[in-house]
Amino acid sequence: MLRATLNAVYVVVAREMIKFMREKGKLVSTLARPLLWLFLVGGGMSRLVSPDMGIPYTQFIFPGIIGMTILFSSIFSSISIIWDKEFGFMKEMLVAPVPRFSIVIGKALSGTLVSTVQALLIVLLYPLLGLDLSVSQILLIALVSVLLSFCISSLGILIATFYESFESFSVIMNFIVMPMFFLSGAMYPVKLLPPILEIFSRINPLTYGIDALKYMVFPEKRFLTHDFPLSLDIGVIVVASVVFVSLGALVFERRK
């Protein structure tokens, strides 16, 4: 049982890694999105936003852009489950003598790996923004990235279990991913949101991930930095991860 589980997790992760390594173009286009937001949106907005808020706007959105990288690459990675259903490979795994929850674990882990790598590539841009990060700060960012990537990947898997075809993709993008990004405190502090939207922010796991990243990027508390206690951030991410993974596994184990 354990052996079968490990084998299956290995297959899922190895398969995703092979594809990740082979599709270099995909990596470039995935990294293009955060770069556009950071330099084009952030650069433009920084002229509008008054600079006396403690930190320049492009620096303020940096943790949010790291979070965005994780959000998109994790969701894309998990949603490959829908492609697998559509293109048949999922059946090959479902009839194999392996526990089905191992597919969920494998997908969550490969999503985590892929997203963390991409997030760290974005983190390395910090000198361009006039930030000064120490090695320990970068390591802590990496740690938070791992946790957040696992959480969002698990959420992606849970979403993917409800869809049978990729036609639902734009629904997922427009009604789940984009609102999650905008309501995460990535582009503006959560506390500036109208109360009704703040509720959505507070049930959004990405909010806590980005908040934790803000802690790591800006160790000193200022107006535009973190909104919640760090323990709450980490707690929410961990609990949400466990809930998402368990629900995903449960749905997978159930035979129709």
Binding site: R3, A8, V11, I18, K19, G88, F89, A96, V98
Partner: peptide
């Protein structure tokens, strides 16, 4: 319906199957 992974090579498809069936 075909259930091969078309992005992978023939050998990789069989290799992963080998892992799944231990």
């Amino acid at each position: 319906d075909n259930t091969l992974d078309k992005e992978l090579t023939a050998y990789e498809n069989l290799l992963f199957h080998g892992y799944l069936y231990d």
